[in-house]
């Protein structure tokens, strides 16, 4: 079975995001004054094979996020797993 995993990684809410601030300032300058709380993150897509149980996939992705893909000191992550046709 093949799984499509989509991962979002963002700075924790409490942490000031310089990149997000800059992008938000850009939007505000263009007149979009109702934009706030902009947070720039990372998006990753990957495929996982050789696992049949979605729970196992979840476990593995969670571990990969903790160990490498996200830095738990400053980043939160969430992900979504889809079974591929």
């Amino acid at each position: 079975m093949e799984w499509l995993v989509k991962i979002n990684i963002q700075l924790k809410e409490s942490i000031l995001d310089p990149q997000g601030q800059a992008v938000q300032a850009g939007l505000n300058a263009l007149g979009y004054n109702n934009v706030s709380d902009l947070n720039v993150g990372k998006y990753m897509e990957l495929k996982i094979t050789d696992l049949t149980d979605k729970e196992q996939v979840k476990e593995q992705v969670d571990e990969m996020c903790r160990r490498l893909l996200a830095n738990p000191v400053i980043e939160d992550y969430r992900f979504n797993i889809e079974e591929m046709a």
Partner: peptide
């Protein structure tokens, strides 16, 4: 060592 690095404030 504790802590982490973010991108510089001016990017």
């Amino acid at each position: 060592l504790p802590g982490a690095m973010k991108v510089n404030n001016n990017l």
